[in-house]
């Protein structure tokens, strides 16, 4: 299988402007720290249900969302906390949602898997694998219908590439030339199943060939590279209304969810992967560009923001039952 896909790309990346890199790093670190705090709160029983952490994958959400305009849409899976933050939602709204509080982005009704934020055009995290892919194509359809110039990014795991929703979504987006970028976050495992046991090819972007759309494939170690490569696809969507199928190769440092001990991989493998932690790589680059002092100041800011988010979540009120009917129907309840 070819490692180097045919799509055109700059051979040497221009170095990121230091202030821009600082912002990308800050976002990645906010996500990392929020996830760590979420894991802690989960262990204390303050967060319930499923909790799928994004630790290790931060560069995908942050790099990709950096290539967007605020009006653009994002749709993703249940592994969605980091994506919501990268799209601009506040860490307070995210943490409060995890705590099931009224001040959470979805009023405490959605929880970890369902981060929605209309204000930042975060169209949600979805629990049924693959189901959100046609839905994302629907948002892109609306953009084309209204000619509003918006682009939709649709994220999914490599496990979703086997399900019908993926194929129908990409097929229709290709046929109708919708302004969308399909981004597979290939973190190597679909729950306990390595990609080699779930697909007949090892590169999910190859699926683009059958639908006649452009594709790309790269590692997510460098957030700057992620931004550039996604930006090229966003440009294609915005200017030519052509979809792209991308595979970003990444790795989740934790189990599939909090209940997964991840016995299907060795600790050696995980340690090996942690050595290319995109957050640490970005930090190193930033220290070179701006100096240790400045980066420490950013770190302190992030710690304060995350502590604030946790405090906000802890202290916020819970929703009461009056929220149930008006969130079931718009208008009178249809009993």
């Amino acid at each position: 299988m070819s490692e180097s896909p045919p799509s055109p790309r700059p051979s040497v990346l221009p170095p990121p402007a230091p202030e821009h890199l600082a912002e990308l790093y800050r976002q990645m670190f906010v996500i990392r720290r929020c996830e760590e705090e979420a894991a802690r709160a989960y262990a204390q029983g303050k967060i319930g249900g499923f909790l799928h952490l994004y630790i290790g994958q931060e560069a995908v959400a942050v790099g990709a969302c950096a290539a967007l305009q605020p009006d653009d849409y994002v749709v993703t899976t249940y592994r969605d906390h980091g994506m919501a933050i990268a799209k601009g939602m506040s860490s307070k709204a995210m943490m409060a949602e995890l705590y099931g509080k009224k001040t959470g982005c979805s009023k405490g009704l959605g929880g970890s898997m369902h981060m929605f934020d209309a204000a930042t055009n975060m169209l949600g995290g979805y629990g049924i694998v693959g189901a959100h892919i046609p839905l994302a194509a629907g948002a892109a359809f609306a953009s084309k219908y209204r000619n509003d110039g918006r682009v939709t990014l649709c994220f999914y795991g490599e496990g979703a590439v086997s399900i019908g929703g993926f194929h129908e979504g990409v097929s229709l987006a290709a046929l109708w030339k919708l302004p969308i970028v399909f981004i597979c976050e290939n973190n190597e495992y679909s729950m306990g199943t390595p990609l080699s046991r779930s697909m007949s090819v090892e590169d999910t972007s190859l699926k683009a060939l059958g639908y006649g759309v452009e594709r790309d494939r790269f590692f997510a170690d460098d957030v700057n590279l992620v931004e550039h490569r996604i930006a090229a696809a966003v440009k294609r969507a915005r200017e030519e209304s052509q979809p792209t199928v991308i595979e970003v190769r990444t790795y989740r440092f934790r189990g599939h969810s909090m209940s997964d001990p991840a016995k299907y991989r060795t600790s050696n493998e995980v340690e090996e992967q942690k050595r290319r932690d995109p957050l640490l790589l970005a930090r190193r680059e930033l220290v070179d560009a701006l100096g240790e002092e400045r980066v420490k100041a950013i770190d302190a800011e992030v710690e304060a923001e995350v502590a604030d988010a946790v405090k906000f979540a802890e202290e916020s009120p819970e929703p009461d039952a009056s929220v149930l009917e008006p969130t079931t129907y718009d208008g009178p309840f249809a009993a």
Partner: peptide, 15 residues
């Protein structure tokens, strides 16, 4: 109750 299941623990028990 005749609504989708909410995430919040108390509301879930209520439903």
């Amino acid at each position: 109750l005749d609504v989708p299941m909410p995430y919040n623990a108390k509301l879930e028990q209520h439903v």
